[in-house]
């Protein structure tokens, strides 16, 4: 089981600094005890997850927040890589989409994201989303423990 005092390790895959900051602020508002790790593209995301290069000593994330529109390797490919990796596929992935329409399109790819969240324009809603990630986390910690 997870240590109650250990922060939730969150990997945010997002190329927009504005969104990164917003996520950080929302986490602050949501009072989630967390460590937010930020990578800016799909290639770096896979390096982080596989602890390669400069990410040799990073923790294994408890949850991944994945934006879809990424430079180099886009979110769909990252999701595909994660879900086809025996070691990584158990990490919950929350896919952040810009529109509901995008979500519909994605579902047709059948990529098995754990959750789709449309980024809200409203800050209040965004905070609700981050809080729901908190709640989501509490339900998924009973699944495979970190580092197994």
């Amino acid at each position: 089981m997870v240590d109650e005092n250990r922060p939730v390790e969150i990997l945010l895959v997002e190329d927009n600094p504005g969104d990164e900051r917003l996520t950080r602020e929302a986490l602050k508002e949501g009072k989630v005890y967390s460590n937010l790790h930020w990578v800016k593209d799909g290639v770096e995301a896979m390096e982080f997850l596989r602890r390669q290069g400069k990410h040799r000593s990073v923790p294994r994330p408890d949850i991944i927040l994945l934006d879809l529109n990424l430079p180099k390797r886009d979110g769909r490919e990252v999701l595909h890589d994660i879900k086809n990796d025996a070691d990584l596929k158990r990490i919950p992935v929350v896919v952040l989409t810009t529109s509901k329409a995008e979500e519909d399109v994605l579902r047709t790819y059948n990529l098995h994201a754990n959750c789709y969240v449309t980024k809200p324009v409203d800050l209040e809603k965004f905070i609700v989303v981050v809080k729901s990630i908190d709640a989501f986390w509490l339900t998924v910690v009973t699944l495979p423990p970190n580092g197994h």
Binding site: N16, G18, D19, L22, E25, T98, S99, K119, P120, V121, D122, L123, E124, F126
Partner: peptide, 13 residues
Amino acid sequence: QEPLRMVSSYAQL
């Protein structure tokens, strides 16, 4: 929608 979210979210923040 992307820049719009920035405008709205940061105004609210």
